[in-house]
Design a protein around this nucleic acid. Structure first.
Length: 973
DNA sequence: CGATCTAGGATTTTT
DNA sequence: TCCTAGATCG
């Protein structure tokens, strides 16, 4: 990078360690070098030990690299630095919380403790399973939110809403919001009206004013989509503007229920997670925040004399506030580059760095409102820009600047001057600018890419630095430096090239094509492991063993290469090959999933990275439900559906092109960069991750997208007109896509290609480059061997099963019975008590009902499994899976007992409960065909266990069928 | 004829 | 959520 000695700006930063510094560290400016030297310099101060300096990074790898480099630059060795706070925010706060946070849940009204063994769940799918169990239970226990649940198309999306709120610093407590952190949820009326006023200003057409942006985005206003009393098009849409009144009315809509709902879900999820000794990353940070706010002694103890935060553009609001609380004095140094802020979807906020001065004062004031938590002054902030770029040529840097002012849509107008004013211009230190910067396009973009790669490799025109010698030094004249640099140049090889794409799917297509031609390309980053042939085959055998599944057999037969028609014959006659039947029977003997997986892969001779990855994933999967095989099937299916990715250790490629998404390329550099797939709808990517029914957005706060209502005469889920109106009045933002573009371009040291197919995006066409259209002709480098991919699978079309709660098939009136009784809280507490007791935690009963539970459980024989998630597929068209939670499943050698607690004072609802228990019955019947199964309701008030005879599957289907259309797929009026 | 408006098609990133 | 093609207005 810089050789040995820092440049002047770097020197300034390294030497000045006291005070607040905002470092604008653009791409390739030697940021890590500077930070590590600064750290080493702070250590030289007398009385300063590594534990006095907190160095927070964004990734674990970055933390490890920092520690490694500091060890080389300071008298401390890696072992001494091992316990130093050089860590990610998450890792650091996790330690703090486990050490000092035991009593913290009480501060927000949760009667629980944080144990040493607190588990941090990082696997999204696993957390999803836990959350789904929670939310099913929550729905069960909160009949007052029935109407909200009816409007939710996917309750599991509440999980990401919670994560988002936590990142914003919104934290619930038992009654209301912790330290008023819930304020943003209400929205900012003034800010919104400002925004609206701007969006609703008429545009200037050639013949006078034309409709405002706000008007055009709600031009198709159709009152019939909404509840009957929604404003009509005439009331909303004027010309050339929207009318103000309905917009104000929309902003001021009554959201008391919605806010209470989100509060309760959030709060009870925290309770639920803590009761199970786990937290997610986001919730953990939130609890650490509460701890540092509430416990002055801990705050004093953990505070650091110096705090440095790397990649500050990737922090969220909560992390900013944590930084303030963790600093003991105003020796704070944040380093980052707003132009590389690309993780908005992880709820980071670029404003942390862009409006640093304003935010630091505001957050300090907030934190000090009732007690002085931040003791130091924050009004003197030194901004240090690092300007010297040690990576790219002048031409690359100049194009990079252009990316930030490139419009992302046809109509978008950007104030280029204003943006440029925010950019610290970078100076290239490279003396030889031999850059080729080309925009190339062809209808077959994959061929084009491969063609260009072959064109570049070994081509002197595209020279890159291939030698370290002779080095340039500061003592040399500019001419001497240039001469030295020129001598280091030579023709590039494959490994000098990187291809970046916006989407993983494009990368996968390219990988496939390159393999065909034998061009060495290695994909780096997450792989859709569950979408591989290995995973599909494994899934097939699991299904075969589980239920002699025809799809499974079809996959397995197809893999052997037999023709489709022959496979069909076998399937119809169910005369499977003997070898396969034998194999299936021995597979069925497997007791563990690990053994099962190994056996399948051994049989097929799979021992590569994918096979090992799958084995690892499936064996680490934890046991929450009934049978391991069916659990594995669901696990794979869910991962497949969620498109989840897993990092796989692939064999290190020798001389090959690197292929990765732009996101995963951050921080890296390559001599030659292809920024591929700069196509319409691909890059920039339009549209937000707006899947959830309930959303938070600045400045309108928490809103719901659809509502359940019977106002039109029958049950129906309507679009919610205030949401449509308010979001229609908000401008769309593509700044993050532009920054992504900037990141891609600034990875290049010397040469840069933008490639596009037949419909290039504005990013391609609006850059000041003349597009060229070479005719691709790709040479085959090594013969493509067919047997490397021995089979291709086209699984038969299957409609996605609809997931419904067992409560959907029950008559709503049963809930009324419950509420007329003793309220939901009573029921909740009883269930919690029963669960604890069943787990053997021996809680003491606090009322008669709980006593009765104790009496009951003490008489039962067998293993107790409380709160078991139960999933029953129903053979309907469309396929339906009913999901519920079994309160208690008791497993004895030959007998299975299913018990559901009811706190009702009467038995009016028994007929409805029978449906629920029947579902559980059939699940158990399938899992344990050799056992007698009994299903009972335990009326806790009466201390009586009533056995319920189950409905048949056929009866269940008949009950479910009419509800499917009504609940999960409301027809439009 | 030009300007403006309206209806349908297509679709991610990951500590 | 943007964009294009066709409809409609003046």
């Amino acid at each position: 990078m810089t050789g040995i000695s820092p440049n002047q700006e770097q020197e300034t930063l390294i030497e000045h360690i006291d005070g607040i510094y905002l470092v604008d560290a653009g791409a390739g400016t030697g940021k890590t070098f500077t930070i590590t030297h600064r750290y080493a310099n702070i250590l030289e101060k007398p009385d300063i030990e590594p534990e006095d300096i907190l160095l927070a990074t964004f990734t674990r790898n970055a933390a490890a690299e920092m520690a490694d480099r500091i060890a080389r630059q300071s008298p401390y060795d890696p072992v001494q630095l091992q316990d130093a706070p050089i860590s990610t925010f998450h890792g650091y706060c996790y330690q703090l919380l486990r050490r000092y946070g035991h009593e913290i849940p009480a501060e927000i009204g949760i009667d629980d403790q944080i144990p040493q063994s607190l588990e941090l769940i990082e696997d999204g799918i696993r957390e999803g399973e836990l959350f789904n169990t929670f939310i099913t239970r929550f729905e069960d226990r909160h009949p007052e939110y029935e109407h909200l649940f009816a409007a939710l198309n996917d309750p599991s999306s509440l999980r990401s809403l919670i994560a988002e709120l936590a990142a914003k610093g919104v934290i619930p407590e038992r009654d209301g919001w912790y330290r008023d952190t819930g304020t943003p949820l209400f929205g900012d009326r003034e800010a919104f009206m400002d925004l609206f006023e701007r969006e609703n200003r008429p545009n200037e057409g050639a013949n006078g004013p034309t409709q405002s942006d706000a008007r055009s985005s709600v031009s198709g206003w159709d009152a019939t989509e909404y509840v009957p009393d929604a404003p009509t098009a005439d009331e909303v849409v004027g010309y050339p503007q929207l009318h103000t009144e309905p917009v104000e009315q929309a902003f001021d809509e009554d959201r008391e229920d919605l806010l209470a709902f989100v509060h309760d879900v959030y709060f009870e999820y925290l309770e639920y997670a803590l009761a199970r000794n786990y937290l997610t990353q986001g919730l953990m940070l939130a609890m650490a925040f509460v701890m540092l706010c509430e416990d002055a002694a801990v705050r004093e103890q953990v505070r650091h004399q110096y705090v440095m935060v790397d990649e500050f553009q990737d922090t969220n609001e909560l992390q900013f506030k944590l930084t303030l609380l963790l600093a003991g004095e105003n020796n704070i140094c944040v380093v980052g580059d707003w132009k590389q802020s690309i993780y908005g979807f992880q709820y980071t906020t670029v404003e942390n760095i862009q409006n640093f001065e304003e935010r630091i004062s505001r957050y300090k004031a907030e934190l000090n409102r009732d007690e002085t938590r931040v003791k130091y002054a924050v009004d003197e902030i030194e901004t240090i820009p690092l300007k010297k770029n040690y990576r790219s040529t002048e031409s690359i840097l100049s194009l990079a600047t252009e990316t930030l002012t490139t419009p992302a849509t046809n109509g978008e107008s950007l104030d280029a001057e204003e943006i440029e004013n925010e950019i610290t211009p970078l100076e290239a230190t490279s003396r030889v600018d031999n850059s080729h910067i080309q925009a190339v396009t062809h209808e077959d973009e994959l061929e084009l890419l491969l063609d260009r790669i072959q064109h570049v490799v070994g081509n002197e025109d595209y020279s890159v630095e291939v030698r370290d010698e002779p080095a340039s030094t500061a003592e040399m004249s500019v001419e001497e430096q240039a001469a030295a640099e020129r001598e280091r140049l030579g023709a590039p090889s494959y490994s000098d090239i990187a291809v970046f794409t916006r989407t993983r799917s494009f990368a996968r297509d390219l990988l496939e094509k390159a393999t065909e031609y034998g061009i060495p390309i290695a994909y780096e980053g997450g792989v859709e492991l569950f979408d591989t042939d290995q995973a599909k085959l494994l899934l097939a055998w699991l299904r075969i063993c589980e239920s002699n599944d025809q799809r499974g057999w079809a996959t397995v037969l197809e893999e052997t290469g037999c023709t489709l028609s022959y496979a069909r014959e076998i399937l119809e006659a169910e005369q499977y090959p003997d070898a396969m039947v034998t194999f299936r029977d021995s597979l069925r003997e497997c007791e563990t999933i690990g053994g099962f997986v190994r056996m399948v892969f051994d049989e097929y001779g799979y021992d590569g990275a994918y096979a090992n990855g799958l084995l690892g994933e499936l064996t680490s999967m934890h046991e929450t439900t009934l049978a391991t095989r069916s659990e594995a099937i669901i696990y794979i299916e869910e991962h497949l559906e969620a498109g989840s990715t897993v990092e796989i250790d692939s064999s290190p490629g020798e001389d090959s092109v690197t292929l990765q998404t732009i996101h995963s390329a951050k921080g890296l550099e390559y001599p030659i960069v292809f920024c591929a797939n700069v196509n319409r709808r691909a890059f920039p990517h339009y549209g937000r991750p707006s899947s959830g029914t309930i959303q938070y957005r600045e400045p309108i706060g928490l809103r719901q997208r659809s509502v359940y209502s019977e106002a039109s005469g029958r049950p129906y889920v309507h679009s919610h007109w205030p949401y449509d109106l308010l979001t229609g009045c908000q401008p769309s933002e593509y700044d993050e896509e532009r920054r992504l573009f900037y990141v891609a371009v600034t990875r290049a040291k010397r040469h840069l290609f933008l490639t596009a197919g037949d419909s290039p995006s504005p990013f391609f066409t609006e850059l000041p480059l003349e597009p060229i259209e070479p005719e691709p002709s790709v040479d085959i480098e090594t013969e493509y061997r067919e047997d490397e991919v021995p089979f291709s699978i086209t699984p038969p079309e299957r409609t996605k099963p609809r997931r419904m709660s067992v409560h959907d098939i029950m008559d709503d009136s049963v809930y009324d019975e419950v509420t007329e009784g003793r309220g939901t809280e009573f029921g909740d507490e009883l269930h919690e008590f029963a669960e604890e007791y069943a787990r053997g935690n021996d809680p003491s009963p606090s009322d008669d009902d709980q006593e009765h539970v104790v009496t009951l459980l003490d008489t039962l024989d067998g293993t107790f499994n409380p709160e078991v998630t139960a999933i029953l597929p129903l053979d309907l068209d469309p396929q339906v899976t009913l999901v519920g939670i079994i309160d208690l499943l008791v497993i004895a050698p030959d007998r299975i007992q299913i018990i559901d607690y009811k706190t009702d004072l009467t038995r009016h609802a028994e007929a409805e409960y029978r449906k629920q228990l029947s579902v559980y019955y059939h699940i158990a019947a399938e899992q344990y065909p050799d056992c007698t199964i009994s299903t009972s309701i335990f009326y806790t008030a009466e201390n009586e266990c009533v056995e319920v005879s189950p409905l048949t599957l056929e009866e269940l289907r008949e009950i479910t069928m009419p509800v499917v259309g009504e609940n999960s797929h409301p027809e439009k009026i």
